[in-house]
């Protein structure tokens, strides 16, 4: 009997894995449906803000003194002389084909090519920051509940609260001043040869607020689990505190942790723009701000949409990782 059961088990294992993968995919698709909605809403808002708010976009691009003929030329180039519905349709089609026309500031370069060039540095910065923040935060949360630090756990918790309450915009420039100007351990802002250490320092700063939030929520979630039966069982079987907290408790606490990471992504992206400005790094934020200053409408639209896309992609990744760790997060 038992042999038969084992054989059936081994036969169904590959299909089980396929089904599990499909379920995982369905989960990610279902959860990102809302995120895609966010993306379309953001894109539509950029589109509508320029066309529905009072004021002539052509005058925004060229300045008030430009001649009527020049303005008409720009209007034709941006398609502003067509009815709003037709403009919106071609805007959405352009988004789908990743073609929103050429940059106004640099004729001959497509807006999405500019964005593609900027996407790399920003993805590196934001991605590294999410990874570092999650790691640091989870480590701090586990250290806050485990027995290793003894009474110093309270101090760690307080430090986490202080970091969580300190805005990035005030501690990032101060830390840069202290570490780059005073102690000279990290490269100065704007140093073109800063390379990997510059990236690491910037993403380390960017990861701190995320790490503090993850630590705060993760600690609360782990403390909630503290009296769960399965942890007592794991300890009674002779599991070390490390095994009890990291192997048994942490996956069960992954739901609130991935929720807080997903919720912090918008702030992280805003922080990335601020840090790119602070360190004079090339990237999506820098591109967006220069397109804003030059009123380069196609590049501005493309870069805002690309930033939204980055946001959605990382959010989907957070959901995927959660579903991977915690089977309760998968769609039934």
């Amino acid at each position: 009997m038992s042999g038969q059961g084992a054989a059936a088990g081994s036969r169904s294992r590959p299909t089980d894995a396929v089904f599990a993968l499909l379920r995982l995919g369905a989960t990610v698709l279902g959860r990102t449906g809302g995120a895609v909605l966010t993306l379309v809403a953001l894109a539509s808002l950029v589109f509508l803000a320029l066309r529905l708010l009072p004021g002539d976009p052509a005058a925004l691009v060229l300045g008030e003194q430009a001649s009527e003929a020049d303005r008409a030329l720009i209007r034709g180039k941006l398609g502003l002389d067509r009815p709003l519905g037709a403009q919106y349709l071609s805007f959405l089609l352009g988004l789908a084909r990743l073609d929103l026309g050429d940059s106004l500031a640099r004729p001959g370069t497509s807006a999405f090519a500019e964005v593609g060039r900027a996407l790399g540095p920003t993805s590196a910065l934001a991605g590294l920051a999410v990874g570092l923040g999650a790691l640091l935060g989870i480590a701090a949360a586990v250290a806050c509940v485990g027995p290793w630090l003894g009474s110093r756990r309270e101090w760690l918790h307080r430090a986490v609260l202080v970091v969580a309450a300190t805005p990035l915009l005030s501690f990032a420039p101060l830390a840069t001043y202290l570490l780059a100007v005073r102690l000279r351990v990290v490269p100065l802002p704007g140093d073109p040869e800063s390379g990997a250490s510059g990236l690491l320092f910037a993403s380390g700063l960017l990861s701190l607020p995320l790490a503090a939030q993850v630590a705060r929520i993760g600690r609360a979630a782990l403390l909630d689990l503290g009296h769960a039966k399965f942890l007592d069982v794991a300890a009674a079987k002779g599991g070390s505190p490390w095994r009890v907290w990291v192997v048994h408790a942490l996956p069960a606490a992954s739901a609130p942790i991935s929720v807080v990471i997903a919720a912090q992504l918008g702030a992280l992206l805003g922080g990335a723009v601020v840090l790119e400005r602070l360190f004079e790094r090339p990237g999506l934020g820098t591109l967006m701000l220069s397109a804003y200053a030059a009123r380069d409408i196609p590049v501005l639209e493309a870069s805002v949409v690309a930033a939204g896309l980055l946001f959605v992609a990382v959010q989907a990744l957070a959901i995927f990782i959660h579903a991977l760790i915690d089977p309760r997060g998968r769609e039934p």
């Binding site: 809302g34 953001l42 925004l60 805003g270 805002v304």
Partner: peptide, 21 residues
């Protein structure tokens, strides 16, 4: 609420403010 709260506020501000001189 979900839609608005998951919006990166900073991008939203940039999108809207770009239309103002």
């Amino acid at each position: 609420c979900d839609l608005v709260q998951s919006f990166p506020t900073f991008l939203l501000a940039l999108a809207v403010l770009s239309a103002v001189r």
